[in-house]
Design a protein around this nucleic acid. Sequence first.
DNA 1: GTTTTATGTCAACGACACTGTCATAAACTG
DNA 2: CAGTTTATGACAGTGTCGTTGACATAAAAC
Lengths: 179, 179
Amino acid sequence: MATPTLRPNPKKSPRRGDDRLFLTERKLREGAELMFFAYRAFTQDPDRLLHARNYGRAHHRALHFIGRRPGISVAGLLEILGITKQSLARVLKPLVEDGLVDSIPGEEDRRQRLLTLTALGRALESDLSRVQRERLSRAFREAGSEAVAGFRAVTALMIDEDARDGILDMVYGAPDRPE
Amino acid sequence: MATPTLRPNPKKSPRRGDDRLFLTERKLREGAELMFFAYRAFTQDPDRLLHARNYGRAHHRALHFIGRRPGISVAGLLEILGITKQSLARVLKPLVEDGLVDSIPGEEDRRQRLLTLTALGRALESDLSRVQRERLSRAFREAGSEAVAGFRAVTALMIDEDARDGILDMVYGAPDRPE
DNA sequence: GTTTTATGTCAACGACACTGTCATAAACTG
DNA sequence: CAGTTTATGACAGTGTCGTTGACATAAAAC
């Protein structure tokens, strides 16, 4: 499912332009506000756990994508996270030092540092994703599967078209543990 | 993944609840990742405009909700934004000094500072929301109205139940310009 | 008249992004 | 082999945005 079910939008008859425009604009504003409030809620549970361990949201993201892609290189992680090398280094260094992430030289290219979670890292990542999943799970369950399909379509379409396919391939494609 | 499903997980028996659980878990992970990538995309256009003016995301949020609720008090804004007084003050002060926000004492309660956008403030807020709306508009249009309904349902349900009604009243209730 | 409320302010701190520079080792290239 | 590019690590500095805690003031409330 690299491309969500796209349907050409049905009715778009701007005869009463003023009224339709107002409604549309209003819906867009509502959508933006929902995005703000939902994201704040979405991050708050893991944030709480992280704060107790003196980590931040960036550590969660690193743990998550290393867990998703064991053996990923620093460069690969940088590309997914879309941050600078220094920003990642600041996050990665304590994770390695604290024994949550293993950083081992690549066999083919020994310049690379291939990143994997240790048992400790998996444990924290699991705790973090659990609380986040619980929230998401409640929302998905109460909203129903059709609503979830809509949610997936809309969020996917918010991503830049250039980057979308690559991101969706990653989100929907790669297994947790590449066999 | 909270349970010992650490293995490559070859296809399990499809009739047992196990498989349903696996699929659900996978969908939840996908949903979380979509949320991350969508939110990053969602904020990037206004962020670019803000950075050019030496403002940040917090300034956008303040401008937005003052525009939404002209005459809102500092306490009211604090409650919506869910940040501390000092965090808001740091953002609000330059906005008032730069002439984007008017801060006038309340008539009934003169301790209050009632906040409104100036013409300048409306202009910037309009620029910011325009670029954000364009992205949202594309996503909503291409996803279709059913998908948008699903998006709204799911994002709303992500919000804490305690706070949900109050937030939704604000999102769906109050008009831009109370008249 | 004391207390509570609404707001502003100051100092300090921490997380997380940025830029720019430099160093090193390994890989690639002519 | 020499030179360049690549992958990474490290350092200095900057800025936004969140936090806490303490203190000041003016006005409202009891």
